[in-house]
Design a protein around this nucleic acid. Sequence first.
RNA 1: GGAGAGAUCGCAUAGUGGUCUAGUGCGCCGCACUCGAAAUGCGGUGUGGGGCAACUCACCGUGGGUUCGAAUCCCACUCUCUCCGCCA
Length: 424
Amino acid sequence: MLDRDLIRRHPDTVRHGIARKRLDVSIVDQFLAADEQWRATLLELERAQAESNRISKNIGKLMAEGKRDEAEAAKAETRDLKARIAELEAESRTHEDALRQIELDMPNLPHDSVPDGDADTIFQVVREGGHLRQFDFTPAAHWDLAERLHLVDFARGAKIAGSGFPVYVGAGARLLRAVITFMVNFQTERGYQEVFPPYLVNRASLVGTGQLPKFEEDLYASTDDLFLIPTAEVPITNLYRDEILDADALPIRLCGYSACFRREAGAAGKDTRGLQRLHQFDKVEMVKFATPETSYAELETMTDDAVAVLEALQLPYRVIEICANDIGAKGSKQYDVEVYSPAMEKWLEVSSCSNFEAYQSRRANIRYRPEPGAKPEFVHILNGSALGIPRVYSTILETFQRADGTIEVPAVLQPYFGGGHLGG
RNA sequence: GGAGAGAUCGCAUAGUGGUCUAGUGCGCCGCACUCGAAAUGCGGUGUGGGGCAACUCACCGUGGGUUCGAAUCCCACUCUCUCCGCCA
């Protein structure tokens, strides 16, 4: 959601930003029209309510003075007014709902620092690190390694749940837990407070972070109007929904592990081999609540925090800045962190770090008080993966495989895994 | 799952149909007193919307209803607490 006053006063600024994202700018005019209608109706409604309040208050006074006849006369007077108010209330609500719907669909604007893209350019590489390993044998793909060493049972996962629900077994399960614990501890030591959230959330939470109302078909729904979380971003960000935060507490830096559930509707068949794209997967997520003054600096350090995990694991990576035409609707600025798969010979996204500015905080109503006694302002909210685990996991298998078929466990994971290698 | 109690302006409480545009205490802010502090006194102190000034509307867990008028009465729901049952 954007600031209503910004859209009213500077519609061209909003149109320009939406155009940079290559999204439909006509939503601005839809907003302005709906807003006009709503405000006109509201004005009329409030006039009628003020009149009604005045009369009712007077009736009370007349009753107290014992002037029953005059009171009865006043009651009769309000009959038409009452009907009119009911009418206007309904009308106003209709207009407000329409406005709200448009507002929830309105994308965020890209930050000035975000480069424009074009049909061929959707990102810029801003940083690279590590060395691509040179193999003196042909590296096997992670799904072959996983099967050969009995780390992941894809077939039985498909049997008990469906494709995209891998079962990690034996040393494979142990390695998964090692990676999760390593990542959470790693970020906790870098100043994030750990959160272990619920895996189901209500509708209001998903509206708060922007998954609803637009993307309901991407979510697994449960009974009781609860949904399985597609990312820990949802529960963690919504921890402070409808709250006013203490300015002294900012920035708040949280991280948490969760399983993530995505229907991936429409993505079937594309890059789904092995652990690349799953319906259930594990991820450690970072969420920050910051003042507008510091949010862009926080985005840089958050991205560094994601990168640091790969450095610790000694995996080659690159950081790309997403151009305006490919940033998600919610974000103002976005960096993706990618890791290199030597067997598939391509870069895999393992983190996406975004500053949403006040887009989510307006939806979720999360504010802070800049000064004691000052009016509350919306906080800036950021999030990023630290990291998406299956692609890191698969890259570890591929990158650290040896000619004899075993796999070396990265040094930082060994204390968690309790051993130096897989297989053999 | 069953029975009961509760949800009021940061906290605690009052309020059971008409100056409640919600009282009081604590906390907080300002001022006075003081060398300073404490104590004391006085004043102020919620959120959101529209106008963006005067002003006005809404909000007493949420949503409906009754009424000229609802924090107050009725219905449904949510959450919290107590007890019982069940259970990892």
